[in-house]
């Protein structure tokens, strides 16, 4: 094994930095898109609760939510060619926080008496449920 000269070593380090930049560029867009769609769709679903006109309105909002998330999942799974180092941990954190807010909020909002159409409950919750997805998306954005 030949010992690299300082300039050869610097060139190798530059190549490693290029590889790192390429992974960052490629790997971030699909996860960021998925998390942003998840956050916004969840907020939309919650915002629809106080304004929905009966069960059909709620069902329509749920269908839109499901379609948006399903589309984002397909893009995430099919389009992904690489994931940035540490992605699973960051993604797990974002999904865990989103799932907790979503599940608790939905359970409380649909079961507690008088909350089903109360905007004062659903609007702050909509903002809250969007946060994990949007923060996660920001962290995954290609840089």
């Amino acid at each position: 094994m030949s010992t690299p000269t300082p300039s050869t070593a610097a060139a190798l380090l530059a190549r490693a930095a290029d590889a790192d930049a390429r992974v960052r560029r490629d790997a971030g867009s699909q996860p960021a898109g998925f998390l942003a769609v998840l956050g916004c769709a969840s907020a939309g679903l919650f915002l629809a609760q106080p304004v929905a006109d009966g069960d059909r309105g709620v069902l329509a909002a749920a269908v839109v939510f499901g379609a948006a998330v399903l589309g984002a999942v397909l893009v995430l799974v099919i389009g992904r060619r690489s994931t940035r180092y540490g992605f699973s941990r960051r993604f797990g954190l974002a999904m865990g926080a989103w799932a907790a807010v979503f599940a608790v909020g939905l359970a409380v909002g649909t079961t507690a008496p008088g909350l089903a159409h109360r905007a004062a409950f659903w609007v702050p919750l909509a903002l809250l449920v969007a946060v994990p997805g949007l923060v996660g998306a920001w962290r995954e954005l290609p840089r």
């Binding site: 190798l12 190549r15 490693a16 590889a19 790192d20 390429r22 992974v23 960052r24 790997a27 992904r80 060619r81 690489s82 994931t83 940035r84 180092y85 540490g86 992605f87 699973s88």
Partner: peptide
């Protein structure tokens, strides 16, 4: 070295 550098930046990367 290039393969290792690519994989070091990634959690997982597709062959292509």
């Amino acid at each position: 070295f290039s393969v290792m550098a690519t994989l070091a930046a990634a959690e997982e990367a597709e062959f292509g």
